[in-house]
């Protein structure tokens, strides 16, 4: 790979980019599972404190919905 393509090597990953991916996407296997936090809002609150840009969770019903069906009490 030529050095001029360095911009898309992963040196520039930001914390927010990582948190967005690790916590927002990734495989969710539906089955007898539960999220590690019984009250999923706890995760959201924690994340919001770390990276304010993840406030999309609060603004997006779609994202919230992507979590909610997976929560098995």
């Amino acid at each position: 790979m030529s050095q001029e393509y360095a911009p898309w090597e992963d040196d520039d990953e930001t914390l927010v980019d990582v948190l967005d991916r690790v916590l927002d996407v990734g495989l969710v296997v539906v089955g007898d599972l539960r999220l590690s936090v019984a009250d999923i809002d706890l995760v959201y609150v924690g994340v919001k404190l770390v990276a304010a840009s993840i406030d999309k969770i609060e603004r997006s019903p779609e994202i919230k919905q992507s979590f909610l069906p997976q929560v098995v009490a």
Binding site: V22, G26, S36
Partner: peptide, 10 residues
């Protein structure tokens, strides 16, 4: 396949 962080099985 990466799994979303926070999924726990009993």
């Amino acid at each position: 396949l990466p799994v979303r962080l926070g999924i726990v099985y009993s």
